[in-house]
Nucleic acid binder design. Structure first.
Length: 255
DNA sequence: AACAGAGTCAACCGCAGAACT
DNA sequence: GAGTTCTGCGGTTGACTCTGT
């Protein structure tokens, strides 16, 4: 079916935003609210793509944006959430008030990612966990590369739908990487997936930070359990077998 | 002072799901 | 149901700044 570009690129400004453009965008959004990004530039008198306006607003102009260095607590939380969620920056950002997904992504790529890599090269691999895949250090560079590739995801929304196995996985010696039989999956209705992941956000940041790694994972599981068991329409076994959800946190088998 | 290389981060790009017609 | 548009996502780029020589 083909796609048209989000807007005509001719005659549009690109690159860094000027103070005047910022002012125009801010005052327009204050007067008319967010949304309708496609038409916004024309109405606001901006020679910008709607997408560009949206990004500028969300990442820079929003009044609730927190400027300045990432604190130690925030850093800690980013690391932990990244361990659990992988490169799902918008979800991670959702737990850090005033921080944007772009900011967190940049911070990870420039600071934390390198640090994790450096640490991985000097440390022996820690205990195995189904949640460690994203940042698990590895002894060989090849293995490290393979792991890193695993967590790379294409841009797709994971908040609208979540796939849950109808049958619990074989109780057997569960390998860290188990194949998911696509024929054995059920789709949760929209919102359910959002609720599952967002349930973690019921906890206070301080509570999450105080927790040990194990406790943190337990809180995460608890949140998922609470959500699954209170969400109508879910099969019992999906709700009671939390291990069956582990693959959601592993880049390997993300459907 | 001048240059090179590394680091940072705002902005862009393409993709894909949701919403609309 | 099919086609189209809107919106939001993660990956990547490139301009700018910082630091070391």
């Amino acid at each position: 079916m083909g796609r048209r570009p989000c807007c005509s690129k001719e005659g549009l400004n690109k690159g860094a935003w000027t103070a005047l453009e910022d002012k125009l965008l801010t005052s327009y959004i204050k007067a008319h609210g967010e949304g309708k990004w496609r038409n916004l530039p024309k109405r606001a008198g901006l020679k910008r793509c709607g997408k560009s306006c949206r990004l500028r607003w969300l990442n820079y102009l929003r009044p609730d944006i927190k400027r300045g260095n990432i604190s130690h607590d925030e850093e800690e939380l980013i690391i932990r959430l990244h361990n659990l969620l992988g490169n799902r920056w918008s979800l991670i950002a959702g737990r850090l008030p005033g921080r944007t997904d772009n900011e967190i992504k940049n911070y990870w790529n420039t600071t934390l990612g390198k640090r994790a890599k450096a640490q991985a090269s000097i440390e022996a691999p820690p205990r195995k966990s189904t949640h460690d895949v994203a940042t698990e250090p590895s002894s060989s560079p090849e293995a490290t590369k393979a792991k890193v590739e695993v967590i790379r995801t294409r841009a797709s929304r994971c908040s609208s739908r979540v796939m849950v196995p109808l049958q619990p996985p074989a109780p057997a010696p569960a390998p860290a990487t188990q194949d998911v039989d696509v024929t054995n999956l059920t789709l949760l209705e929209p919102d359910t997936g959002t609720q599952v992941l967002d349930s973690l956000f019921d906890f206070e940041i301080s509570e999450l930070l105080k927790a040990s790694d194990e406790e943190f994972e337990e809180l995460f599981d608890e949140a998922m359990f609470k959500d699954l068991t209170t969400t109508p329409g879910l099969s019992d076994n999906a709700a009671t077998d939390l291990d069956s959800l582990a693959f959601l946190l592993d880049g390997h088998d993300w459907p």
